[in-house]
Computed example of a mutant assay.
Amino acid sequence: MAMTRRQVVTGFSVLYLLGLTILAAYALRSSHLYSLPIPDVVSACVVALPPLAGVALETVISLNEKLAAKGQLQTSRVFQVTVGFFLVFEAVLATLAGTHISPPGSLTCALGETWQDLFKRKEVERIKRIQDTFSCCGFNSPRDMAFPFPDATHGSDACVVRYEREGACFEPWRDEERKVAIMLLVVPVAVFVWKVAIVLAPSSQSSWLSSHIRLPSDSSHQGSATRRRTLPALGYRDEEGQGEEDSLYKAVTDLNNDSRLATHVESNRARSNGVLNDAARWRDNDE
C-alpha cells in the first residue's frame, strides 16, 4: 500500500526530531559529566523541546482536520498561540546557549569559578575526570588547583609528577564547553526551521491556511466549470444596438482615424501659420 504524503512528512518529522533529541541528550550528558558551567535546566529544556514541539503541532494539525471535516471553523487562534509560545521558548534557549559560545573572554570567569568551587569542596572524582579526559593538570597551569590536592605529603606539582602531564585544563575544557553550547544552540534553531517547513509546505490532507483563502479542490473546480457553462455567452455590441460582433475593433479603428485626422489638421494649421509669418516678414521688409 502506497504511503500518503502526510505519512511521509510525519515519518520524516519523527526521525528528524528524534535525531535532535539524541543530540541534545548527548550535550546534556557531556555538560554534566565534565562539570561544565552550563545550567542543567537549560540542557534539559533543550532535550524536551523537539518532542514537545512535535506533539503540540501534530495535535493542532489533527484538531484542525477534524474540525474542517465537520465544516466547523479551524482553530487558528490555538495554532497562533502554540507557534508563538514555541517561538519564544526557542529564542530563549538559543540565547542562553549562545552565551557559552563567545566571546571567549567571558567564558574564563565562569570556568574559573566552577573549577575553584570544585577545588574548595574537594570534588576528587569530578576534577580527576576532567584531567583524565583531556590529559591535563590544574586549571591555568599544571600546578594551579590540580589533583592530587596539595597537602603534607603532596606538593602543587603532584599531578605533573604522577601523570607526567605538562598541559593545563583550561583550553580543552573551554573548547568542550563551546562544543556543547553549539549543540544546544543547533537544536532550537533546527526545530524552528522544521516548524517553518511544516507551516509553509503542509501535506495534501492538512492546511494551515484559513478556510476562506484555501485553494479550491477538484470538486470546486468542477462546480466552477459547471457554473461557467450555464452562464449565457456575452458578446460585444455597440451603443446603438446594431448587433455588430466586432464593435471593439471598430471602436479602435475609429480612434485611429480620429488621431490621424487631428494630426493632419494640426500640420495644416502649422503650415498656414508659417505662410502667414513669411508674408508678414516680406511686408515689413518692403516697408
Rank of each mutant, 00 (worst) to 15 (best):
R5M: 12
R6D: 06
R6M: 03
Q7S: 05
V8E: 09
S13M: 13
L15Q: 12
Y16T: 14
L18I: 01
G19M: 06
T21P: 03
I22C: 15
A27L: 00
L28D: 06
A44T: 14
C45E: 13
V46C: 07
G54H: 00
E58F: 03
L63D: 14
A68G: 10
A69S: 07
Q74I: 13
Q74C: 09
T75L: 00
S76H: 09
S76T: 15
F79I: 15
G84A: 02
F85P: 00
F86C: 03
F86E: 00
V92M: 02
L93K: 03
A94L: 03
L96N: 03
G98M: 04
T99H: 12
T99Y: 06
H100Y: 12
I101E: 02
S102M: 09
P103G: 03
P103N: 10
L107E: 03
C109W: 10
A110L: 05
G112E: 10
W115T: 00
Q116F: 05
R121W: 03
K122T: 13
V124M: 01
R129C: 05
Q131R: 07
Q131G: 05
D132Q: 08
G138R: 05
F139Q: 06
S141A: 15
R143N: 14
D144H: 06
P148D: 08
F149L: 01
F149T: 02
T153G: 00
G155P: 09
G155Q: 10
A158R: 08
V160A: 07
E164C: 05
A168K: 02
C169F: 03
C169K: 04
D175K: 15
E176C: 06
R178T: 14
V180H: 11
A181Y: 01
V187F: 05
P188G: 04
P188W: 01
V193D: 11
V193Q: 09
V193L: 10
W194Y: 14
K195L: 11
A197V: 13
P202M: 01
S203G: 15
S207W: 06
S207P: 04
S210L: 07
S211R: 03
S211N: 02
D218V: 13
S219F: 08
H221W: 13
S224D: 12
R229G: 07
A233L: 10
L234K: 14
G235C: 07
Y236T: 14
Y236N: 15
R237D: 14
E239H: 02
E240A: 12
Q242V: 11
Q242H: 12
E245P: 14
L248Y: 04
K250Q: 13
L255C: 09
N257T: 15
N257G: 02
D258Y: 07
R260T: 04
E266A: 09
E266R: 04
N268R: 11
A270C: 01
R271K: 13
N273E: 14
G274I: 02
L276R: 08
N277I: 05
W282R: 12
D284Y: 02
